[in-house]
Design a protein around this nucleic acid. Sequence first.
DNA 1: GTCATTGCAAAGGATTTGCAGTTCC
DNA 2: GGAACTGCAAATCCTTTGCAATGAC
Lengths: 150, 150
Amino acid sequence: MTLHPQEIEARFRRQAVRVTRQRAAIYAALVETTSHPTAEDLYRMVTRQHPTMSRNTVYYTLGVLRKAGLLQEVNVGHEVARFDGNVTMHHHLVCVQCSRIEDVMDQELDRLEISARQARGFHVLGHRVEFHGYCVSCRAGRREASPSQG
Amino acid sequence: MTLHPQEIEARFRRQAVRVTRQRAAIYAALVETTSHPTAEDLYRMVTRQHPTMSRNTVYYTLGVLRKAGLLQEVNVGHEVARFDGNVTMHHHLVCVQCSRIEDVMDQELDRLEISARQARGFHVLGHRVEFHGYCVSCRAGRREASPSQG
DNA sequence: GTCATTGCAAAGGATTTGCAGTTCC
DNA sequence: GGAACTGCAAATCCTTTGCAATGAC
């Protein structure tokens, strides 16, 4: 998807994100690909047009855009590997604030399937459902918090 | 869940994993918790009983046990952050070999819910289904590969 | 006995932080 | 004008690697 500079600017302003050339370039690169790039990928893509841009700007901008809801991380909670001794199929509740993870056993969820057309040629081995939200403790801490928290 | 040393040893032998005190301790610690610990968490847990154990052993052992199918990583593909400019609800196909990620749009999957009982008090904001498997290119490369690949 | 495993130290890669100069609002 | 952003460098954190000593089979 190609995006007009005006459209990018409009989206930024709607989320009260300051508009700079660098940010627009990073966001444009991200929206124009379906490859789910890493920060480093984006750095490489964007420095073609903006050779002086630093990695710091890329990382900082990605953080700003994420908080503004203009992009998602595909692998939520990717920061550290988390291990599970339960190797049977099950699913997870993940706290977006404290990264607490709880197990969900549910045979309905185990049975989910994907149509051949949707599978895009993947040989699917399994799947997992991840529910994102606030755990009990983090809800408690948010009782009085402002409604728009990221 | 508490596990007898004999049971641990049996599981290891079944998967042709060499039995050492360190491995048994790491595996026991993992199976006996539901907290989905990090490598560092496990290191801390295990060094209480085995003060000389190094982080290397923990990381190496976790790799061995993962390949043997004795544990799972919760956050598959956690190594690097991956970004997505598509902030509408959608799901992913993830290649376990090359980490390629493709989008899956499917309203059935969007509608999944979790019962209050299962939600464990979480305030659920959303969810995502991740299908794991081999993408087209990686399937091609595996045609002649041995059936037991990790 | 042999090869995998362990422990220690150092390296590597991803991300964050500190800070001075610059830019947007 | 002032706060937020940018670029550069250094630091930090997680994880991997190199290597000699040790231990499992």
